[in-house]
């Protein structure tokens, strides 16, 4: 029935839908306030502009918070030089504000995000599950240079990935790109040698343990600070490696998890399987 529709009509219909959608988005963009600004001197919080969270919480408790107008959303604020000193709470512990939001304010989101990736990887592995078939001989074997080169490159790439996720709270990056970098190093190993297989059980254990570590960090927060995923470590001085509380711990867990997970996904994509149903 649908197959009989000529291709032209289909394209015209598609163009129509696309046009409506684009016009709507343009309209929305025209009528929205543009250029959101944030004052870096103040701490990042819900409004990111007026105040830091501690004062805001105090105002909130006394009922004055919402009485203030929401006007100065885009106001430019006079610049005061920042002095880095010992920080009182996680809010000003991390130099990278995005990290602070990802892991601390919205840490629960990040837990969910890790879960989504884990479930997608599980789904891929479940679908491509089966008895491994030996790969046919390729016409072109990778050369010796490729073999040695990928192995040397793997060491460097691995180190770089670890650097990215350990420094997540200081520099751009964090657990997800770090893990992806490590996984791409392992992808290089696959390309360097025919029939390369990583240690499957090792990957599985690694993946599970780092996931469990994340949840257990959250549960420690629940039992010590009385709130799930709450920070329970000192926050240190901005810009130091040992600062920002539990952010680096969580990023290490995320990095290892993402790395091993994506490596497992690549592995099950590359291998040939023959499924069997009992």
């Amino acid at each position: 029935m649908k197959n009989d529709t000529p291709k032209v009509f289909k394209s015209i219909f598609a163009l129509f839908v696309v046009a409506i959608f684009m016009i709507g988005l343009f309209y929305a963009f025209v009528s929205m306030p543009k250029g959101w600004g944030v004052n870096v001197n103040n701490r990042v919080s819900r409004l990111y502009i007026l105040k830091n969270v501690r004062t805001a919480t105090r105002l909130l408790d006394s009922g004055k918070f919402f009485a203030k107008g929401m006007k100065p959303l885009r106001a430019e604020v006079p610049y005061k030089p920042i002095k880095f000193k010992k920080t009182a709470n996680l809010e000003d512990g991390a130099a990278n504000v995005v990290t602070s939001i990802v892991v601390d304010y919205r840490g629960f989101d990040t837990l969910g995000e890790v879960t989504v990736l884990f479930l997608a990887a599980s789904g891929v592995m479940m679908l491509l599950f089966g008895k491994r078939v030996k790969p046919k001989r390729k016409k072109t074997e990778p050369s010796l240079i490729m073999y040695v080169g990928t192995r040397i490159a793997f060491a460097v790439i691995f180190l770089f990935g670890i650097y990215i996720f350990v420094h997540g709270h200081l520099t751009p990056g964090g657990g997800f790109p770090g893990g992806a970098v490590i996984a791409s190093g392992i992808l290089g190993l696959f390309l360097g040698r025919n029939g390369y297989t990583p240690n499957h059980a090792g990957l599985k254990v690694f993946e599970s343990l780092s996931g469990i570590a994340f949840v257990i960090i959250g549960l420690i927060g629940l039992f010590s600070v009385k709130s799930f995923l709450a920070n329970f470590l000192p926050t240190g001085i901005i810009g130091n490696l040992y600062s920002a509380g539990f952010i680096s711990l969580i990023y290490i867990a995320i990095g290892m998890k993402v790395g091993s997970e994506l490596a497992a996904v690549v592995d099950s994509m590359i291998g040939d399987t023959k499924e069997e149903w009992s």
């Binding site: 990278n96 751009p172 990056g173 964090g174 790109p177 992806a180 791409s184 992808l187």
Partner: peptide, 17 residues
């Protein structure tokens, strides 16, 4: 942050898979 993540995940690994 987003740039690095998109380069590593969106452009790199996604295309490779």
């Amino acid at each position: 942050d987003v740039a690095i993540t998109e380069a590593a995940i969106g452009a790199g690994l996604s295309t490779a898979i």
